[in-house]
Write a protein that binds this DNA or RNA. Structure first.
Lengths: 288, 288
DNA sequence: GCCAATATGAAATATTAATTCCAATCTATA
DNA sequence: TATAGATTGGAATTAATATTTCATATTGGC
């Protein structure tokens, strides 16, 4: 007794991912019609989940018996048990995006342990992304890219909660070989740093309520020097908005008093990469 | 002829929402057992989609015939056609989120202007969040929280692309009044900084391929001093994994060569806030 | 409290779908 | 090219599942 015996179903794939891997693995060695139904199964998993052996076989252009042979070759004892795997998959990802989010948030708000905290942050991030995806103004986005693309140096200005975004922008700009200056508060030399900026440069300033006084002050100073500013902030009443040539309103969902920054991050990354893209285009045009 | 006649199925709900509304509407006037199966259907739509008349009836505590009567009362000609609505719902729901993402990504990959870049980053971030939500191991998460909660000082270690995450963790830990030390490379004093760490402290180390050599080296050094390490990285082959007591594998989707960091951010935020929570609990217990 | 109308339970029946079987066809090898 | 072995198609068989039926119970109006 033990490992061998009547059952023999020790290595039958129980979840969709394993099944998928198994199929892809054996793909090359499968006979023609079996391969055909295998391909169909991976391409139309929903049909397998809902159809009958006959209907699926017809759609895939094979006989029902082939479908059963396929299942058996994978170690299942028939089509029905293969189908279970496809149904289970649908169950697991069953709910719609919004329902899933609502469930996450509900679970999080019930406060069921530490997992709930994680779920809460995932939900907040997802919500924020979905919001910004809807709200982003294409025209503003294009203007901001154009403005930043022709800057000699891009100054990046953010403190506290927004600082991670700024440091990411600086990192990405560096990788794209775009001259930039992260205005950090460490050495207290910000005023001098800002002093070097000219109207041929540009600024990305990021601040959310409660707005860090230093960010506001520095933005004001640099705006007075005539340096154009792109602001990422959270409302039209934001003090940044008045100094900015272009500003984006990003509303981030919060959880447990900590606001998400994923929407801001996505916007920042897109802005950065788009500026890189634009510069390459312009460079080519100049050359050609 | 026209509206009346033999068929009479003009107002049969064809989609789930209409069906749901119809059921809720008639709820009060339904006989006991029918009401019972109606409630069950709205609470467990997945079971209706996949079960057999017999299995569903058993779960809901009624006879199969009652289930059929329920369907007929709603205007369907049997259980099978009622079931179609529940199956259709799963099909649509499922596709909506994934299709939306796929559409975003497709648009992004076609490269239709700058908006496409933005869509690409939003899609990458959403995918990453959804992946980590599925993949996160609760047990590891709890262990990590426990480990970090009892640390005297939490050292945060990350360079380059991961640095924004580290700076966010440091900011959040600070707000939660948890002693922490961000190991930055600026002044070149990292070795000395690390030298102060003891086994009563703990480390959060973050690094993704290509792993910044400095992060690896510093993690190794601090591990050799017996300081327990929680790592966030991208594979079990990561050099960080070997030094870590607990490590999380986070797979981030990428767009245009820039990987998302939203999943890592969500995990980092959750970890931080959960540690704060845990400390407060423990503090209370000690007092009370 | 009685009667008619309605609702319910349980088993019989009809329908549909999965599986098996066998003959026909293809494929690789000597 | 002959032949064994594998693969496939299609119909027959078996299993499962939905539906119907009918006896029994319950409810609401008088």
């Amino acid at each position: 007794m033990g490992a061998d015996g009547a059952t023999m179903d020790e290595r039958v794939p129980r979840d969709f991912e394993t099944l998928r891997a198994t199929i892809l693995d054996r793909r090359a060695s499968l006979p023609k019609r079996i391969a055909q139904i295998a391909a169909y199964a991976l391409d139309n998993p929903d049909d397998i989940a809902f159809g009958t052996a006959a209907s699926i076989a017809a759609s895939a252009g094979v006989q029902p018996s082939t479908l059963i042979r396929f299942a058996q070759q994978l170690g299942f004892d028939g089509f029905t048990s293969l189908q279970q795997v496809f149904r289970e998959r649908l169950r697991e990802r069953n709910s719609s995006y919004d329902e899933r989010l609502a469930a996450l948030r509900a679970k999080a708000e019930e406060g069921a342990g530490h997992r709930a905290i994680f779920d809460g942050f995932v939900a907040a991030a997802s919500t924020s992304l979905s919001d910004i995806s809807r709200a982003l103004n294409d025209a503003h986005f294009e203007e901001a890219i154009a403005l930043l693309a022709k800057a000699e140096t891009i100054y990046v200005l953010a403190k506290r909660r927004s600082y991670p975004v700024a440091s990411y922008i600086a990192y990405a700009l560096g990788k794209l070989k775009i001259r930039n200056q992260l205005v950090e508060s460490a050495a207290g030399l910000n005023a001098e740093m800002i002093g070097f900026a000219t109207p041929r440069d540009a600024v990305i300033a990021i601040s959310f309520s409660p707005y860090a006084p230093a960010t506001i002050e520095e933005t004001r100073a640099i705006a007075e020097q005539g340096v154009p500013i792109v602001a990422i902030t959270d409302s039209s009443f934001s003090p940044l908005a008045q100094f900015a040539k272009i500003w984006f309103e990003v509303s981030e969902a919060d959880f447990g008093g900590f606001r998400s920054i994923s929407a801001t991050m996505a916007l920042a990354m897109a802005l950065t990469v788009a500026v890189g893209e634009k510069r390459r285009e312009t460079g080519r045009r100049r050359k050609g």
